[in-house]
């Protein structure tokens, strides 16, 4: 299966990377990682790429890493469709101080607009 993983640099998105890689190693998925530019994240896209490469160094995976600039949700949906990915994986659903799960704008956009099957890693 061709999997596109969107990463914005949140803790949740790195957990999604770990989950996706574990699954891919078992199932033989081909993983492409797309780094999106999130205004609310202090890490630069280059720092995110370094972090991804460090985390993947211990695995057998060598995924294709892309950088997407502009509106994160629409760029992810666009790439997933253009290159005919089977699945788009995104992290989201951060918890508020009270424990409520909140979906941000990127996640909402992806869920509503993707023609590709979406996996949400919470």
């Amino acid at each position: 299966m061709k999997v596109l993983l969107g990463i914005g640099g949140s803790d949740g998105s790195f957990e999604a990377l770990a989950d996706t890689v574990t699954r891919a190693e078992e199932a033989g998925d081909a993983v492409t990682v797309a780094i999106v530019d999130r205004e609310d994240i202090t890490l630069t896209p280059e720092e995110i790429e370094t972090e991804i490469r460090e985390r993947l160094a211990e695995t057998s995976m060598e995924p294709d890493i892309r950088h997407l600039s502009g509106h994160p949700g629409s760029r992810l949906v666009e790439l997933a469709e253009q290159e005919q990915f089977d699945r788009l994986v995104v992290a989201g659903g951060e918890r508020s101080p009270l424990g409520k799960i909140n979906f941000d704008e990127t996640l909402e956009f992806v869920l509503l607009n993707a023609e590709t099957t979406v996996t949400l890693v919470r």
Partner: peptide, 12 residues
């Protein structure tokens, strides 16, 4: 608590 009265994951 009724399951359908939960909101955004709470109460657990």
């Amino acid at each position: 608590f009724e399951a359908e009265d939960r909101a955004q994951g709470i109460p657990p």
